[in-house]
């Protein structure tokens, strides 16, 4: 697998995670009183754009690469979320989760190489 394709796969997962987080923020904001509709709208627009970018990039990758080689990259989403929460929200990652992140990274590298 080329470095560009592997990078696109990682980018795809970033877009997926960012999209999900923005949609979650938008949904959370609808529970506030009064509802901050501008923030909801921006988060929704950002989430949908991010997921759209993920989807069409994924379709582009699917055209050129085998599904069984691409799909393991989907496993990067949970570690990316955990790392994002650690970096941006200061949330603690348990040793078990760190082990999982390392395993997913090794697995994805093995699939991309093989």
């Amino acid at each position: 697998m080329t470095l560009l394709a592997a990078s696109m796969c990682v980018l795809c997962q970033f877009c997926l995670v960012i999209g999900q987080l923005l949609l979650k923020h938008a949904m959370n904001a609808t529970r506030l009183v009064p509802v901050p509709w501008a923030a909801v709208g921006w988060n929704l627009a950002g989430g949908i754009s991010s997921l759209g970018l993920w989807f069409f990039t994924w379709l582009g990758l699917l055209r050129d690469w085998e599904l069984s080689r691409l799909f393991p990259f989907e496993g990067l989403s949970p570690p990316l979320l955990a790392l994002g929460a650690w970096i941006f929200l200061g949330e603690r990652i348990s040793p078990r989760a760190w082990a999982g992140i390392v395993l997913v990274g090794c697995g994805v590298a093995l699939v991309a190489e093989g």
């Binding site: 069984s68 393991p72 496993g75 949970p78 570690p79 955990a82 078990r96 989760a97 082990a99 999982g100 992140i101 390392v102 395993l103 997913v104 990274g105 090794c106 697995g107 994805v108 590298a109 093995l110 699939v111 991309a112 093989g114």
Partner: peptide, 14 residues
């Protein structure tokens, strides 16, 4: 083997 590692890692991150 890579798929098995991803599966194991995903279960651990959980």
């Amino acid at each position: 083997a890579g798929i098995a590692l991803v599966l194991g890692g995903t279960l651990l991150v959980g």
